[in-house]
């Protein structure tokens, strides 16, 4: 181990861990209900769901609050996933997943998903307060 004189708090690690934990909480609180309603109950026809018809789906997607919600719902958990999957690789015996390039790839992917989500939300449905 190197001498501790040279040791400084790893602010990058701190930031990514912070994003990991926030994304984890959000994923835990919100994803199951989306899977149950949109992924299972809706397609099986058990309940009427907003994405079953074009007009209901497009009108709710136009709501700015919904847009903001979806941005947070989709992008933040990806910082959680990126962190977990990077350490999963470490656990499976790939120490290279700790390296700086690996961090760029994994957290970069989360940033990319965030940018794509912003683009999709801004381009699919025009903003309307309805």
């Amino acid at each position: 181990m190197t001498e501790q004189v040279a040791r400084r708090p790893a602010l990058a690690h701190l930031f990514w861990w912070f994003m990991f934990s926030q994304g984890g909480v959000l994923a835990a609180l919100l994803i199951p209900v989306h899977i149950v309603v949109q992924g299972i109950l809706g397609p099986l026809g058990v309940v009427k769901v907003v994405d079953r018809h074009y007009d209901t789906w497009i009108s709710i997607l136009g709501n700015p609050i919904v847009k903001l919600y979806l941005l947070v719902l989709i992008s933040l958990p990806f910082f959680h996933f990126a962190h977990r999957l990077r350490y999963l690789l470490v656990d499976l015996g790939v120490p290279a997943a700790k390296s700086f390039p690996a961090q760029v790839v994994f957290y970069g992917a989360a940033i990319l998903v965030t940018l794509v989500t912003i683009w999709v939300l801004l381009t699919t449905a025009p903003i309307s307060l309805g």
Partner: peptide, 15 residues
């Protein structure tokens, strides 16, 4: 203690 604790080989490595 912070430099040892918050080092990349410190708390952040724990999964």
């Amino acid at each position: 203690r912070l430099p040892m604790i918050a080092h990349p080989d410190g708390i952040w490595e724990c999964s």
